[in-house]
Design a protein around this nucleic acid. Structure first.
Length: 218
DNA sequence: GGCCAGGACACCA
DNA sequence: TGGTGTCATGGC
């Protein structure tokens, strides 16, 4: 079986096991971006607390963030860890979003995907994974998001090495899947769900729906 | 009570 | 370019 078919086979197994994940968990595109920045290297449970606080304070918008002090913002997002870094990251994004797109997600969505990705990667605290999460889940652009679970799952099943670069993983997926926002959305969400449940750093994959799966030679 | 979570960046050689 | 330290919370 070729790589393309294997990738779709894995997708179907995950979907059959877990169903639609309905990602990203947020009420708005802006909330997706808050979450994408806040979730860096931290569990989603912590992010939820920070988002709830921002929401309760009426500051879950980049217009609000642009108008508030970095110190106060840091206090509001404390549960999300690395609070000073992330407060600065949110402020920087708010400045960019306001100046370049007038705080309009609609206007941003009209921009070319490659241009957007370069712009995002030039912002403080937005690396490849955060940029691609924003592109896919907030702006509905067909980019495949790579995260630690994706790497773990596909390295343990013999497709790539854990040490391979973000770009190498992304080329692997995007070179073998059609550019489909819905597919990329669901696939990555399923990988995170599977990873959360079964693919811990110390392998313990007994009930995993991908058990016994190995890369077959093409 | 230790481990680790849906990363990114700075600094050094 | 790669290797390593820093950031500094909360759940399990």
């Amino acid at each position: 079986m070729g790589i393309k078919r294997q990738l779709m086979d894995i997708y179907r197994r995950l979907y059959a096991a877990f169903g639609s994940r309905n990602w990203w968990p947020a009420d708005s595109a802006e909330e997706v971006i808050f979450g994408a920045i806040l979730t860096q290297n931290i569990s989603w449970k912590n992010v939820e607390q920070a988002l709830a606080t921002l929401k309760a304070e009426g500051t879950l918008s980049f217009k609000a963030v642009a108008g508030m002090g970095e110190q106060r913002l840091a206090e509001l997002i404390r549960p999300a860890r690395f609070l000073n870094q992330k407060a600065r990251g949110l402020k920087v994004f708010a400045g960019y979003f306001g100046e370049r797109y007038g705080f309009s997600i609609k206007r941003m969505m009209k921009q070319d995907m490659g241009v957007l990705r370069d712009e995002l990667l030039n912002l403080y605290l937005i690396g490849p994974e955060t940029a691609d999460s924003i592109l896919l889940y907030a702006l509905e652009k067909p980019v495949f998001v790579i995260d630690v679970y994706t790497k773990r799952i596909f390295s343990r099943h013999g497709f790539l090495e854990m040490e391979d670069s973000y770009d190498a993983y992304q080329r692997f997926f995007m070179g073998n899947l059609l550019p489909d926002v819905k597919l990329y959305n669901e696939y990555h969400a399923l990988l995170v769900h599977a990873g959360n449940q079964f693919c811990k750093p110390k392998p313990n994959c007994t009930p995993c729906p991908l058990n016994n799966l190995r890369k077959s030679s093409t």
